[in-house]
């Protein structure tokens, strides 16, 4: 799946300038980088939330699912929020169970904590059928147990459906666990790409090295 060269400028400042990127179907591609490196901008542009500078730019012509950093809980129960994106009751039960949301299923979703809301949002997204899944720091608010459960679900979804997953994360550890390939963004540019093991073993750029060192890698 090809993502055409992408550029975004805010008030004359280029926040993202990427070359063509190929995303493998049935594979997880992690995007890492410091704050302001353009990770979320990339996610929003691909999901059609924001527009790139080039108005004629086209996102891949596939069904795209996107989970923003702060997902919205609609005014209904947790279970109904999840059911909004599909009526497969068995799958809904499975997702609620794995993400430990079963006891909260009948509770108003607006009363969920930040981590619980993120779990509900992931379950809701995974109820749908997509060919490209964009997840913007889906586990940032979750505890470790929930993070591992969520990672299992993401990997399973990718394998079962053969969709491409673009995972925005700050955690190189998470990228190591989940991703087949890692893109390292620095000030809006693709600084480096490769497997997590490659990046950890021999980062080619100084920025990648200092980013990884900062995270104790």
């Amino acid at each position: 799946m090809k993502i055409l060269p992408l550029k975004k400028t805010y008030a004359g400042k280029t926040v993202l300038d990427l070359p063509e990127i190929e995303l493998g179907t049935g594979r997880v591609t992690a995007v890492i980088g410091a704050n302001g490196s353009g990770k979320s901008t990339l996610a929003k542009l691909l999901a059609g939330i924001e527009r790139p500078d080039e108005r004629s730019w086209k996102a891949p012509a596939v069904r795209i699912g996107y989970m923003p950093q702060k997902s919205y809980a609609f005014r209904m129960s947790t279970a109904r929020n999840v059911a909004l994106n599909g009526d497969d009751a068995q799958r809904r039960q499975h997702l609620l169970k794995v993400l430990q949301l079963e006891p909260l299923a009948r509770q108003r979703a607006k009363k969920l904590s930040g981590g619980e809301t993120a779990k509900m949002a992931l379950a809701r997204l995974l109820m749908g059928r997509y060919e490209l899944l964009i997840l913007d720091e889906p586990t940032a608010a979750m505890d470790m147990e929930s993070t591992f459960a969520a990672e299992g679900l993401i990997a399973g979804y990718c394998k079962e459906t053969g969709c491409a997953v673009l995972l925005i994360t700050h955690s190189i550890r998470q990228a190591q666990r989940l991703a087949d390939e890692v893109l390292f963004l620095h000030r809006g540019e693709l600084a480096e790409r490769g497997s997590a093991a490659q990046l950890l073993a021999a980062p080619a750029r100084e920025e990648t090295k200092s980013f990884l060192e900062f995270y104790g890698m």
Partner: peptide, 23 residues
């Protein structure tokens, strides 16, 4: 926030409007 979430789920304009009304 609602628009970003609903659009991310692939909901069309009609469904997004109904969800907004519900809110």
């Amino acid at each position: 926030a609602m628009r970003e979430t609903a659009k991310g789920l692939g909901f069309g304009l009609g469904k997004r409007f109904l969800l907004l009304l519900n809110e």
